[in-house]
Write a protein that binds this DNA or RNA. Structure first.
Lengths: 134, 134
DNA sequence: TCTTGAGTCCGTAGCCACTACGGGGTGTAG
DNA sequence: CTACACCCCGTAGTGGCTACGGACTCAAGA
């Protein structure tokens, strides 16, 4: 069986090769063994760990949160509660981001809509941006 | 009447003082006149311009987009169409961000929900993150 | 055997939009 | 006169990568 080099790890996990090295540098993933030529040599466990990281990033967890998740995922931790807490806090963040964006989208939509009528003297989008109150 | 110093400009527009200097440095707002002591001296027009910038930033436009908007807002431009195009493109971005976050929130909600039953062997949140397929 | 091209090594710098820091000068109220 | 707030400037740090440059190694083809 062929050794897992950094390139293979990258393509198997969908994490950019240079990002893998970055994660190693900041200690998010452990430094792997090196072959005689100096090349990094990963095991299938590393693939799983990095996939975990990638999915967590995709879900918008930041690096520090992922560090915590990885620690909680260590064997022997009966940590479902803590994980749930972290996930719920994160969910709260996401939901307030969503409602921010929704308010924002409806503001934009409103001023774009007005453009359609085109009997307006000035540009409603610029007007909204230039309005003296927020 | 008191002169508009950078601190007043900042508090009137809600833009951080150091951010005002940053915007000046990158040429987003013009460099103001200086008093004899070297202090920046703003006019009410500058307050309007910076407020515009702030609202656009709040709506998630990036600096380059705002540069364009400011140029289009210059007098003598009959540019409503272009502004609308920019705004619509931006709205598209926002809407896809919203749906990304919504998918993400329902994923998270689903795995948190499973935790509630608590007859589960392992932690569903970690399971989801650790699942081999995305 | 030689060459070509892909893969890997490393450190460093750049990206965006700020934000903070440090060390100084200035203005004002008590 | 002494606090203390305000302002000046340049530089460095933030997060999470991404890109660059120059050197090495390895596998496959001619």
């Amino acid at each position: 069986m062929a050794a897992i080099t950094i390139g293979k790890l990258a393509s198997q996990t969908g994490v950019h090769l240079e990002t893998v090295r970055y994660y190693e540098r900041i200690g998010l993933i452990p430094a792997p063994r090196r072959a005689r030529n100096g090349y990094r040599h990963y095991r299938s466990e590393d693939v799983r760990r990095l996939s975990f990281v990638r999915r967590a990033r995709d879900l918008g967890f930041d690096i520090e949160e992922i560090r915590t998740l990885l620690a909680l995922a260590e064997p022997g931790q009966s940590s479902c509660d803590e994980v749930r807490k972290l996930a719920m806090a994160h969910l709260g963040d996401i939901q307030s981001k969503i409602s921010d964006l929704q308010r924002l989208a409806s503001l934009l939509t409103a001023s774009i809509e007005q453009c359609r009528g085109s009997e307006v003297p000035a540009c409603p989008v610029l007007d909204m941006l230039g309005a003296s109150a927020a």
